[in-house]
Design a protein around this nucleic acid. Structure first.
Length: 428
RNA sequence: GUCCCCAUCGUCUAGUCUGGUCUAGGACACGGGCCUUUCGAGCCUGCGGCGCCGGUUCAAAUCCGGCUGGGGACGCCA
């Protein structure tokens, strides 16, 4: 059976590189009806922290990545020591200064990589390596081999940064007569400028993207596209579509620069194509997670407002800032509105207020009809009246359609806010 | 320094294996236009690329070599 694994170390948050590696492994397993194993590489007792472990598994779940089995290396130290002893018995390893060293018996090694083809190593940077440290814990290359072999991992899919570890690991497999798995080394993610991933940028936790209002499906979709393409100019792919289309051979060899522009576009795309109820729930739980005061807005009310902003959001976090005037008692005129405020139209606004107050059933079509008629009677182009009205109601010069905004705001607030602008002009 | 990987628009990529159908296709970003009460969305449209040199061939983005450039690895971290 096909088995793959994702092996994070709980010494930090799950960041974009790790998430993408997990995603590729998971998709490959699901596509081929195989098993996806989560292996926690918590051998460093000092740096491993339970809160990181929690964060990593929460982030994976958020991205809809599930696992069939989970292992902890910290519970397997005896196993590693046993195999190290075996190597000593075979003369491939020896003990020195309380630690156990493996002797690399090197000759040219070929790695048959499923993504990059045959890779030949002519030299190793060292001829021995610590496999059991003096504190009794295993070294990375060793525990990795033992576990991949014992867990019967059939294909090791990991970042290209591990490519140069591969010949060393092959030597360990050979020394123990283990079956050597297939290898597939993913291209690395590069900084937006095309250079190396900076600690600042690359270290951004997945949970941070969630906090910023990115959708898990757009993040997953974007990550998969960083180094993989199904062809046919397909870009928007659900996890289940990806599960069908994915082939390891279609993975690129070239490092891919992370583009926030494209991620933003994709997130906005997912937002505006989401079913309105799903989007409203998504925003509601986002507000709850953020402990935002708008979190307890009644669902139906929230939905009315979300409808107006669905095509205007890049991330969920923009919603409370852009829509706050719907939920607040009063409006605040933003600096961007100042130029509109300079043109006093007190008389006209008074008339408009009066006309709007006569509407029974404050619906957008009735509002629009009355509004246009009023403008005509006043001998004004509609736009002349629209702009100050929008400022009066929203405090801004940009936003959703004015008539829909009025309907959702409600007659009472509309009249009250028009009145406020008239008074504001009078005082000036 | 040693070893390894990679190289198509600014970015992500299709095409490269099986050379001609590629005056290189799509997406993001950017420019112009349409729509329109603003913004956004949508629609139309433009800009822009096979890193360089040489070889093989009737023919090269596609095959070969070199160069240059970028990335990675060389911890009792993982």
């Amino acid at each position: 059976m096909l088995r793959v694994r994702f092996a994070p170390s709980p010494t930090g948050f799950l960041h974009i590189g790790g998430a993408r590696t997990a995603l590729f492994n998971w998709v490959y397993a699901r596509k081929n009806k195989g098993e996806f194993i989560l292996r926690i590489e918590d051998t460093d007792q000092n740096r491993s922290k339970p809160e990181y472990l929690t964060e990593i598994s929460e982030s994976l779940k958020w991205l809809k990545i599930d696992w069939d089995q989970i292992y902890y290396q910290s519970k397997r130290f005896d196993i590693y020591r046993d195999y190290a002893q075996k190597l000593i018995g075979k003369g491939s390893a020896y003990k020195k200064d309380e630690a156990i060293f493996f002797k690399y018996n090197f000759s040219q090694i070929e790695v048959n990589d499923l993504i990059r083809g045959k890779v030949t190593f002519n030299e190793l940077p060292k001829d021995e390596e610590v496999i059991i440290k003096k504190d009794g814990t295993p070294g990375y290359n060793f525990s990795c081999c033992i576990d991949d072999a014992l867990m019967e991992i059939s294909c090791v899919i990991r970042g290209e940064d591990h490519l140069s570890n591969t010949p060393k690991q092959i030597l360990i497999y050979r020394a123990l007569d283990f079956k050597i798995p297939d290898f597939a080394h993913l291209p690395l993610i590069l900084s937006p400028d095309g250079g190396r991933l900076s600690k600042r940028f690359g270290a951004t936790a997945i949970s941070e993207y969630k906090k910023q209002g990115y959708l898990p499906e757009s993040l997953a979709n974007y990550f998969l596209l960083l180094g993989w393409s199904p062809g046919q100019d397909r870009e928007i792919l659900s996890l289940s579509e990806t599960k069908e289309l994915f082939k390891l051979k279609d993975v690129n060899k070239t490092g891919a620069a992370f583009s926030l522009d494209k991620l933003n576009w994709m997130n906005a795309y997912y937002i505006r194509n989401k079913n309105i109820d799903q989007l409203t729930k998504e925003i509601q739980s986002f507000l709850v997670n953020q402990k935002h005061p708008f979190a307890n807005i009644e669902y139906g009310r929230l939905k009315e407002v979300v409808v107006l902003f669905q095509t205007r959001l890049t991330t969920l976090s923009e919603f409370p800032d852009k829509a706050n005037f719907f939920f607040s008692q009063d409006v605040e005129y933003l600096p961007e509105a100042s130029s509109v405020l300079e043109n006093k139209l007190s008389q006209e606004m008074e008339t408009l207020k009066d006309k709007l107050s006569q509407i029974n059933g404050f619906r957008k079509d009735l509002i629009e009809e009355k509004f246009r008629k009023t403008a005509k009677d006043l001998d004004l182009k509609v736009g002349i009246l629209v702009h100050p009205t929008r400022v009066a109601l929203t405090g801004r010069r940009k936003g959703p359609g004015l008539f829909e905004t009025m309907e959702v705001l409600g007659k009472e607030k509309v009249l009250q806010r028009l009145d406020k602008l008239i008074k504001y002009w009078e005082e000036k």
